[in-house]
Design a protein around this nucleic acid. Structure first.
Lengths: 122, 122
DNA sequence: CAGCATCCGGTCCGATACTG
DNA sequence: CAGTATCGGACCGGATGCTG
């Protein structure tokens, strides 16, 4: 059963949604995960693909995802250094669940924009 | 096809993930949507169920979700006033996509906690 | 190339107090 | 009951400059 745990201290990690899901939600994490869907990619490729993300923020998101075990970081020594990121099985499971959301987002795009205009008109 | 739109101005609304998904991601929105899964509920019930959310924040999230057309707000006049929230078809579609994520979050709970401990130990 | 360091403004969000 | 008002702190995230 799904738990929506009532907790006075969310940091005790008693709620899966709060603890596991929250760090992988959000615009950037979602975009990073989707960008890696088709296989390992390098830092600069991910950055270029997403477009409007700075190095600092991208690094931050990659670290969080790596820490939670959703992706692995590979370093190819050399000059210049090449670093690539790859989804782990956990990450692939997650992206598989995200895909339908991304598709839904695309399908709902117009309807949501219309709903906003309507709401704001009052 | 999934678009991961490269845009210099994310506010033009060219990317569904950025525009549609981002507002419904995040801890609170997710929790609110899941709380309404089994039918309409009143403000205080939602607040009690989630537990650690203030009126101010809950109101804010409910408004955003309402604005985007994912839930409807019903006011029963009287004293005391009764206000209930109900998922729209759009909201129900969204929750249906969230459910697998919530289940996955629960299943991954332990593995993620272990991954974090391991990562932090370096 | 893949970042880290620094600065800093904006937003999120929690606490508290108040109201029709 | 279902909010609104206000405040202040934490955190997010953008810009810029630097480095092995």
């Amino acid at each position: 059963m799904l738990q929506i745990t009532v907790t006075t201290d969310a940091e005790t990690g008693l709620c899966p949604v709060r603890s596991v899901l929250t760090p992988v939600l959000g615009k950037w994490s979602t975009l990073v995960l989707l960008a890696l869907e088709d296989g390992p990619q390098r830092f600069s490729w991910i950055k270029r693909t997403i477009g409007d993300v700075t190095s600092r923020v991208l690094t931050e998101k990659l670290r969080t995802l790596e820490r939670d075990g959703h992706l692995a970081r590979h370093v190819d020594a050399g000059s210049p250094v090449k670093v690539s990121y790859e989804l782990t099985s956990s990450g692939r499971a997650l992206v598989a669940l995200y895909r339908p959301l991304a598709i839904w987002a695309e399908e709902s795009f117009e309807a949501v924009k219309r709903a906003r205009v309507k709401y704001d008109a009052r």
